[in-house]
Design a protein around this nucleic acid. Sequence first.
DNA 1: AGCGTGATCTTT
DNA 2: AAGATCACGCTG
Length: 196
Amino acid sequence: MERLGTQFFTAPTLVLTERLLGKVFMRITPSGTVLKGRIVETEAYLGNNDEACHAWRKKTERNRVMFEAPGTLYVYFSYGCHHLLNIVTEPEGIAGAVLIRAMEPLEGIPSMQERRNTTVETALMSGPAKLTSALGIDRSSSGRDLFGNEFFLLDAPLPPPSMICTSTRVGITRSRELPWRKYLADNPHVSKGRPS
DNA sequence: AGCGTGATCTTT
DNA sequence: AAGATCACGCTG
C-alpha cells in the first residue's frame, strides 16, 4: 500500500471526510510495533459557522493546531479521561479537521487488545476514544503530522458510493443539523453512538 | 440512564 | 475566582 503525501490533503474538509473512509491509518511505536486500522467513520469540523467546532469563535491555545497545515494531527483531551484524534484539513491559517471516529483493526491486534483490556475485536477501535487508546495516542502526538516516521496514512480504494452513509454528528449539542458524519454501511466497527 | 474526571472557555 | 460545558465509555 502506497503512503499518502501532502497532496492528498489539499481537498476541502467535506470531501476528505468521505475520501478518508477505507484509508489505512498506521502508527509505528517507539518499540517498533506496527499498528494499523482502516478508517470506517469520520466527521467534519470547520472553523466558520460550525458552533460545534473548537475553533468556531477564535484561535486559542487549545485549538491552534486546527489552523496548522493539512495532514497535521490534532489530539485533544475530553471528559477528563479520553483522547480524540483529528486530521487537520484546509490550508494553513484556516481552521478545519476531520475527527476519526472509528477504525477496523488490521495489524498489531494483540497490542491493541492489551491497551484496551479486551479481546473483543469490534470493541477495540469502534469509537473515537477507543481507537486512540488502542493506538496509544494522546495529546503528546498533537501537532505531529502524517509525513514523518511515526504516523502514516496508506492509500486504499475508496469504497463504492453505495456503501457510504451520511448522518448528523454524534455527541454534540450545537450545529447538530449539519450532515457532516460519514461511515461505512454495515461495518461492525462503526461506533455505537447515535447522531444528535 | 447515570456518572466519572479534568482541561478549557465563559462569565463574574 | 467560580461555574458551565464537553466531538465519550463503562456500569448497571
